[in-house]
Nucleic acid binder design. Structure first.
Length: 483
RNA sequence: CGGGGCAUAGCUCAGUCUGGUAGAGCACCUGCUUUGGGAGCAGGGGGCCGUGAGUUCGAAUCCCACUGCCCCGACCA
């Protein structure tokens, strides 16, 4: 390839979107390819810190909705996977299997969990006897492995981190309520914390989770117009209950199978974050998930009193920490300009510079990560100001993303226009009529690599004709290319 | 799994065609000088040239095999 003088340069989005994505990850020190382990990645401290923020916020939301955390084994007896026909069919191509342990071949092979419905089903069967044991609301934070042909950091890797909620209920209605409740937890999380607007919807039968009756999802639009499934929530019906004999005695004294749900989000959310907000200068993070809110950079001018600058820097950092912000006072021995670039690439929302001139004027210089130039303001009232800045920053990110989603969501009624929208690498969110058949979905996917991302929950009934076949349709569905 | 590319310093790569003591830039370390948008000078450390087997007096270089990684397609959170 070209022998770039600056290998640390970030490829502009317009030049090569997927290179840009990888460059941002590298420059922000979020992760790197595991290199010695196929298809896997190392999540570096700055990337993991974002995941920890995501975990904390979501975990609080799960607890608030009555769930408890537990942990199940990484290894699952191979026979378990086979108990639910559709489930095994969906996952078998991507399973990693343990065949040997302790120096000899295993009697029964284990698969490394691709998801835990089966082993959790096994234990639910032991734990549940009566309607009094229900609902059982469990969540697990774990790693899973799916052997993927092609990987992209955070979006699709062999091993990834996630949470998987697993619940059991006495009635289908109750399970259904849970599925919808968690879908909205995800939707709220995406919009409130990630500043990422999402479309809440139902998957088509061909896109749903293997083994579920129905899958719900939140779909987000990335900057290139493609959709990213950011979270899913499944109505498992009694499929796993029957496969694992998860029965309970109901109030009428009869045996019945439980109704189950499962729902999850993964480290893919970090990919979603990157592709929602970041720019050609690097990462941009919403304050609610940013590991560092403010970086304070000291400037030691000619003949300046270093100790004095340092003292002021410390005082500013302390003041900002006092209002709950995470602050780095960067006293490393680098030129200020070097630090500016580095922290910008890492997505810190606000930079404050403190030097002799500022001290003299009782001022600070600051740089908004979203602004072109830096600005100045008084030293007074820094805490409240910075705190309000973060709220505003979070809001600006959300508004910007919402605007982009609105601008790039269109209704299309004829096939020629539909094709034009998806020419080349182009993509938008297209609301169009669909005749509801898997055949039509397949044809569109084949020809344009476009799929039905979901049937939006808020889709209003509307008579129309399928954009491809002209057959009757009762509402529009969301079409897009996707990650 | 198909097609393509690559493998030499921490990183990006030159050197391979035409065999002869291992190279550059960046990064790193030390010192001095600097500090408001990626500093400068001087000195320094760092290599099983992916692995294995050949050819040869001699292999990063030639031959064979293997492995790994990246990119593009078919599958997927």
């Amino acid at each position: 390839m070209s022998s770039e003088k600056q290998p640390e340069r970030i490829t502009p989005r317009a030049e090569d979107y997927s290179r840009w994505y990888l460059d941002v990850i590298r420059q922000a020190s979020l992760a790197e390819p595991a290199e010695v382990v196929k298809g896997c990645m190392v999540i570096k401290p700055h990337g993991y810190a974002i995941w920890e923020k995501i975990q904390r916020a979501l975990d609080d939301m799960f607890k608030a909705t009555g769930h408890q955390n537990a942990y199940f084994p990484l290894l699952i007896p191979e026979s378990f996977l086979k108990k639910e026909a559709e489930h095994v069919e969906g996952f078998s191509p991507e399973l990693a299997v343990v065949t040997h342990a302790g120096g000899k071949e295993l009697e029964e092979r284990y698969v490394i969990r691709p998801t835990s419905e089966t082993i959790i089903g096994h234990f639910f069967a032991k734990w549940i006897e009566s309607w009094r044991d229900l609902p059982l609301l469990i969540n697990q934070w774990a790693n899973v492995m799916r052997w993927e042909m092609r990987t992209r950091m955070f979006l699709r890797t062999g091993e990834f981190l996630w949470q998987e909620g697993h619940t059991a209920h006495a009635t289908h209605d109750e399970a259904r309520e849970e599925v919808i409740r968690m879908l909205h937890v995800y939707g709220d999380f995406a919009e409130t914390f990630m500043a990422m607007p999402v479309v809440r919807g139902i998957k088509t039968q061909s896109e749903k989770f293997a083994g579920a009756l129905e899958s719900f999802c939140i779909e987000a639009m990335m900057q290139d117009g493609k959709a990213l499934q950011a979270g899913t929530s499944h109505d498992l019906g009694q499929n796993f209950g029957k496969a694992f004999d998860v029965k309970f005695q109901n109030k009428e004294g009869q045996q019945d199978f439980v109704w189950q749900t499962s729902w999850g989000v993964s480290t893919r959310l970090i990919g979603a974050l990157i592709m929602s907000h970041s720019d050609d200068n690097g990462l941009v993070l919403p304050p609610k998930l940013a590991p560092v809110h403010v970086v304070v950079v000291p400037i030691y001018g000619k003949g300046a009193d270093e100790a004095l600058v340092r003292e002021h820097g410390e005082a500013i950092a302390k003041e900002l920490r006092g209002v709950g912000l995470t602050v780095v006072f960067d006293t490393r021995d680098y030129k200020p300009g070097f630090k500016y670039f580095e922290w910008e690439q890492k997505g810190v929302p606000l930079r404050i510079e403190i030097g002799p001139k500022d001290i003299e004027k009782n001022a600070i210089a600051y740089k908004d990560r979203l602004a072109e130039k830096k600005d100045f303001r008084s030293r007074d009232g820094l805490g409240p100001w910075a705190s309000a800045f973060m709220d505003d920053f979070q809001k600006r990110l959300f508004e910007r993303a919402k605007q982009r989603l609105a601008d790039n969501t269109i209704e299309v009624d004829d096939w020629e226009t539909f094709k034009k929208v998806f020419e080349g690498q182009e993509s938008k969110f297209v609301m169009a009529h669909w005749d509801g058949t898997a055949e039509t979905e397949a044809r569109i996917k084949e020809e344009l690599k476009v799929t039905v991302r979901c049937i939006p929950l808020d889709a209003k009934p509307e008579e129309g004709k399928c954009v491809l076949t002209g057959k009757p349709s009762k509402r529009r569905v969301l079409f897009s290319k996707s990650y």
